[in-house]
């Protein structure tokens, strides 16, 4: 019985074994065989991600990172924060309960590279923006254990002393545009001064940031230092925008339904099943 079921497979394999036996005498045949066998999978899985439309959701309100936030992102990459922090809330109930609406593909549409991460030594940061104050981030980055005694996160106090390199920002934004982020010429040309302006609300530079990136941009002294724009300013500016480029996730997901229900129903609401 078993043998019967097997026999077509066995014959197929015999054919393969014979083919292989001939192939293994020719190094180039082996080479092409390997390239072919190893080529299929990647192609089938990656290419359609560029062509199937609903891979990335539509989000008309999506904005790009400001130069200061992008500079902060570069520091996040440089320091290897992604080694401990994910930025990807999975479609699992406990993650939605803990971190908020699950992450959408569109939310990292301008992330070159993505920072989804593969390890959560620390908590997920995908929706961190505005969760804590600038001051808390500052203290936490200077010495995590001063605010969270159990923390195993490294100290990053030195960021406060390092003046942010803003001169390279136009070139950075230009490179990002080359890979598909829709920065305008004006945004690229003014990148350096916009970066400084965003962290110095009391200067005129701040106005340009509003013009080019919108009213909702966070314009503050992020690191409590008035005299210069430090790398700390940039990193905190980035942390405060995490999850804030678009509200597509909050808009499309039923999380928080309960609150809406309670507000509408007023006192003594009936526990309804679904939204």
């Amino acid at each position: 019985m078993f043998r019967k079921i097997l026999s077509p497979f066995a014959r197929l394999f015999d054919l393969q074994a014979r083919t292989h036996y001939r192939t293994e005498r020719h190094s180039m045949a082996l080479t092409f065989g390997i390239i072919l066998a190893a080529g299929v999978g990647g192609f089938v899985e990656i290419a359609p991600l560029f062509t199937i439309d609903d891979t990335v959701e539509a989000a008309p309100d999506m904005r790009v990172y400001t130069p200061l936030e992008q500079a902060g992102r570069d520091i996040y990459v440089r320091e290897g924060c992604y080694a401990c922090h994910s930025q990807m809330i999975r479609t699992l109930q406990d993650e939605v309960d803990r971190y908020g609406p699950y992450s959408l593909a569109v939310e990292s549409k301008y992330d070159h590279p993505m920072l989804w991460g593969s390890k959560r030594t620390g908590p997920d940061l995908a929706r961190l923006g505005q969760k804590y104050s600038d001051d808390w981030h500052l203290r936490h980055l200077i010495d995590p254990r001063a605010v969270v005694p159990e923390s195993v996160m490294p100290q990053y106090a030195f960021l406060l002393d390092k003046t942010l390199d803003t001169e390279s920002l136009p070139a950075r934004l230009a490179a990002l545009r080359a890979v598909g982020v829709p920065y305008t010429d004006a945004q690229i040309d003014n990148a350096a001064q916009d970066a400084r302006g965003q962290a110095r609300p009391f200067t005129e530079g701040a106005d340009g940031v509003i013009d080019r990136y919108g009213d909702d941009t966070n314009i503050r002294v992020f690191s409590a230092q008035q005299d210069r724009v430090s790398e700390m300013d940039a990193l905190i500016a980035y942390l405060q925008i995490l999850g804030g480029l678009t509200d597509a996730a909050e808009r499309t997901q039923p999380a928080g339904a309960q609150d809406a229900r309670a507000a509408v129903a007023g006192p003594a609401p009936q526990p309804t099943g679904t939204e």
Partner: peptide
């Protein structure tokens, strides 16, 4: 699809908790 599934779970869990969270919200 994973997205539908988790949304259903979240809503269902929310409804199950609703028995008492709705009262907390109201009182």
């Amino acid at each position: 699809d994973q997205k539908d599934r988790v949304e259903r779970q979240v809503v269902a869990a929310d409804a199950a908790r609703g028995v008492w969270t709705d009262r907390i919200a109201a009182l």
